[in-house]
């Protein structure tokens, strides 16, 4: 059975954006089994902006699962933001997971915001000033939780959802100097620690869509400025073994099929 996953990140909602996504979202249940939101749902993380997210992405007719992004943390109102989203039926993951039943397939989604630090060979280390060590430890702890959340699921198909990027591939287009602020290889390592089928992230507005972890997991940057549409849809075909050999990606017409 093909599982259809819709995803978008970095929608940065406030009053001025409410209603822009809704016409396309009304069509979503015809083309997807679930919608994943890859963080930066609000402009700067207020409860009132979260209500805009709830209005726009609530009551869609399919499960909606989200992680938060750095913008959603800015005003230190994270508990209120999460409460508003969850009251609207939008499940927020942070080092946690959920298993959904989709057409007889157990779809496991593990999510975390993630954090920065950079990528192998050009990354920050847990060394030196307390601030530097705290920075790296933050990413390390989040990555550990994400890996655990992925591995512990009893499901047929695993998807990882983050805001920050797990690989540098999907950052192509961004200035290389800011890669350490856009993601961390530790997230990729966590994703590779389980037989993950697909990893979705946002955050890199000037990045590119496609990448792969060193372990062969397909990575997609679904930041709204990157995909330039209300959401992208991915069809995941069985077998869902997380195997790396012989994977083929193709784009086909018919987003509402």
């Amino acid at each position: 059975m093909v599982i259809r996953i819709a995803a978008v990140g970095d929608v940065h909602l406030d009053q001025d954006v409410v209603g822009r996504f809704r016409p396309a979202l009304e069509q979503l249940p015809e083309s997807a089994d679930v919608l994943l939101l890859a963080g930066d749902l609000t402009r700067h993380g207020t409860e009132s902006e979260a209500r805009c997210v709830a209005t726009e992405f609530g009551d869609l007719g399919v499960p909606v699962v989200a992680v938060l992004g750095n913008h959603d943390h800015h005003c230190d109102e994270v508990p209120a933001v999460i409460r508003v989203l969850e009251d609207a039926g939008i499940l927020v993951l942070e080092g946690t997971n959920v298993v959904l039943e989709c057409a007889g397939v157990r779809l496991g989604i593990a999510g975390a915001k993630g954090f920065g630090g950079g990528f192998a060979g050009r990354c920050a280390s847990e060394f030196g000033e307390p601030e530097m060590k705290a920075f790296v430890r933050t990413t390390s702890a989040i990555a550990d939780q994400l890996g655990e959340a992925l591995r512990e699921m009893d499901c047929d198909l695993r998807v990882a959802l983050t805001h920050y990027a797990p690989v540098p591939d999907t950052l192509a287009g961004e200035p290389p100097e800011i890669y350490p602020f856009l993601g961390s290889y530790l997230l990729g390592q966590a994703i590779d620690s389980a037989p993950t089928e697909l990893a979705l992230h946002g955050h890199a507005h000037a990045g590119s869509e496609r990448g792969t972890t060193p372990g062969g997991v397909r990575v997609r940057n679904v930041a709204h400025p990157v995909i330039k549409q209300a959401y992208s849809v991915f069809h995941l075909h069985p077998p869902y073994a997380g195997a790396t050999a012989g994977k083929v990606s193709a784009v086909s017409a018919g987003g509402s099929s």
């Binding site: 259809r4 822009r20 996504f21 016409p23 396309a24 069509q27 979503l28 083309s31 089928e197 697909l198 397909r218 997609r220 330039k228 549409q229 209300a230 959401y231 992208s232 849809v233 991915f234 069809h235 995941l236 075909h237 994977k247 083929v248 990606s249 193709a250 784009v251 086909s252 017409a253 018919g254 987003g255 509402s256 099929s257």
Partner: peptide
């Protein structure tokens, strides 16, 4: 742009 997608990506 916020239009609905006209294509899907098939991941096999």
């Amino acid at each position: 742009r916020t239009q609905a997608p006209t294509e899907v990506e098939e991941l096999r």
